[in-house]
Structures are given as structure tokens and as C-alpha cells.
């Protein structure tokens, strides 16, 4: 390398060094930025998290803030969305990969799925408000929020499931059909079990998306922080998830410490989600 560079003209040499320096600078800047962001949030936030903060509802009487209602809202919204989106998303992927015979239909569905990926969450929020809250009469409640998120995370589930269905060897299906199984039987007993990890990855990605979502939820699920533990009751009432609560506490009420604490919790979740996906991918690779 050194020999090669020495034989170059001075102009080329300077240019080379300059560009190389620029590349290192950009990579270093990006990396430092990520680290700084994470460290800063943890330093500012972790100290603010306490047992009471996590396990109580906000109290006007005592003037304390607790995020238990928001944690519960987040969990309920995740559960409800996943329960609804999983059969739909996996079903759509099965159709695209196993049943569909018309190429044009497949291309059209895939185009629609891609389009959904590109629509920003504020638009989901508006249409969710118009369709679920007003047209279907659900009003602003966790269920409206969850249904809006279902549409939003559908592409994620479809894509990851489709990818893992594609990795199931064709011979499995042929073998099953040769033994007299119907297509559905083969899918249920052979194909789907072989692509469980892919579906799981999709779920984890979807959870990440839901946890981080705010714009689509403010107008559909609302911003309330009232403690309701019964899931059926909770689904019918307004409730803000952690991200929404962060926004409300910081932007509308100026409670910055609470914001940092929630941000730290969200970051822990984001890290956990990334590690989870890594583990599944590692397991997949080992098997392949």
C-alpha cells in the first residue's frame, strides 16, 4: 500500500488522503453520535426512574407523576395489535408465497404493501381518526389506536413472514404433497413451523414500531393517563402509550425529568428489541 501511494503524483496523493480522512471522519461522527445519544439519555434518565414512578398513576393530590397507566396502555396496545395483525399478515404472506397463481395480483398486493410502508404515521393517525373513531363509532380509545397500528405494521409482518417462507425448501412442500397431504395441511404442519423464527422477527420489529409510535396514536388512542387494569374496559377508553406520554409531559407540561426517564425506558426497550432480533437471526443462520 505504501509503495503504491508513494509512486503517485502529489495531487493524487493529497486527494487520496483527503477523501480517506473524510470517510473516517463521517464514520466516526456517526458512531460517536449514536453513542453520545444513548449515553446521554441513560445518564439523564436512569436516575429519574424509581419504583414509585413505575408503579403508580399520576396523582394531582400528591403532585406526583407515575407512568403505570402508560405502561399498561402500551402493553394492551401491543397485545391487541399483534393479535389482530398476526393472522392477517401471516395469511397475506401465505397467500403471496403459497397460493397466489396470478402474478399480477401478487405484484399489486406487494405494491400496496410497499405503499403502506411509505405512508407517514400522521396520515395513519388522521385516517384512523376518521375511519375507526368516527365512521365506525369507536371514539378515541385504545382499540381505535390498535386498529390503526394494525394497518401500519401489516407490511412488516407480511414482509418478514414472506422472507422466511421463501427459505423453506421447496422439497418440503413437494414431499408433503407427494405423501397425500393437501396444500393447507402441508402449510400448517410443515411450512409454517419452519418459518416461526421469521414470524417472530416480524413481531419484534412490530413491537418496536408500536413502542416508538406517537403521531398515529395521539388522534386515535388519545393521551389519557388513567389507570385501568381490565383490558376490555381499557380498550374502550382513551390511553396514551409511553411515547405519547413522553410527548405530553415534555412538550405540553414541561416535565423534562419525566421525559428523560421515559426516554431511558424506551431506549432500554429499543436495545432489548435489537438484541432479540440479533439472537433470532443468529439462531437462523446456525440452522441454515
Amino acid at each position: 500500500m505504501d509503495n503504491e501511494v508513494r509512486s503517485l503524483s502529489k495531487k493524487r496523493k493529497t486527494m487520496d488522503a483527503l477523501l480517506r480522512g473524510l470517510i473516517y471522519l463521517c464514520a466516526a461522527a456517526t458512531f460517536v453520535l449514536v453513542l453520545a445519544l444513548i449515553v446521554y439519555i441513560f445518564v439523564k434518565g436512569v436516575g429519574e426512574i424509581s419504583w414509585d414512578f413505575l408503579t403508580t398513576a399520576p396523582s394531582h393530590l400528591k403532585g406526583t407523576i407515575g407512568i403505570l397507566p402508560n405502561i399498561i396502555s402500551t402493553i394492551y396496545i401491543i397485545l391487541t395489535s399483534l393479535i389482530i395483525v398476526l393472522p392477517l399478515g401471516v395469511g397475506a404472506a401465505i397467500y403471496l408465497n403459497e397460493y397466489a397463481t396470478n402474478r399480477k395480483v401478487v405484484a399489486f398486493i406487494e405494491f400496496a404493501t410497499e405503499t403502506l410502508t411509505g405512508i407517514p404515521s400522521i396520515i395513519y393517525g388522521l385516517v384512523g381518526m376518521l375511519f375507526f373513531c368516527q365512521y365506525m363509532g369507536l371514539q378515541g380509545c385504545l382499540l381505535s389506536g390498535a386498529l390503526t397500528l394494525v394497518i401500519m405494521i401489516l407490511p412488516t409482518i407480511v414482509r418478514t413472514t414472506q422472507e422466511s417462507l421463501k427459505t423453506v425448501p421447496q422439497s418440503y412442500r413437494e414431499g408433503a404433497v407427494a405423501l397425500g397431504a393437501t396444500k393447507w395441511h402441508a402449510i400448517r404442519t410443515i411450512v409454517l413451523p419452519s418459518s416461526v423464527e421469521g414470524i417472530l422477527t416480524g413481531c419484534i420489529l412490530a413491537i418496536g414500531r408500536i413502542v416508538g409510535e406517537s403521531a398515529a396514536l395521539i388522534f386515535t388512542a388519545g393521551v389519557a393517563s388513567i389507570l385501568i387494569t381490565n383490558i376490555l374496559e381499557a380498550l374502550q377508553s382513551s390511553g396514551g402509550t409511553l411515547s405519547v406520554a413522553l410527548y405530553v409531559y415534555v412538550y405540553e407540561r414541561g416535565e423534562f425529568e419525566v421525559g428523560y426517564a421515559i426516554a431511558a425506558i424506551l431506549m432500554i426497550l429499543v436495545l432489548a428489541i435489537n438484541i432479540g432480533i440479533k439472537l433470532i437471526n443468529a439462531k437462523l443462520k446456525k440452522r441454515a
Binding site: L37, Y247, L266, N274
Partner: peptide, 20 residues
Amino acid sequence: PAIQLLAGIPSVVYGLIGML
């Protein structure tokens, strides 16, 4: 993977850091 973490950070967290 560190840079991919950025993609997972909720936008309200960016907003928080941006604002404060």
C-alpha cells in the same frame, strides 16, 4: 448495528433531545 439502533429510537426521543 450501532447505527441501525438510530432507526429504532422513537421520534419523540429525538424530539426530546432536540428540544432540550
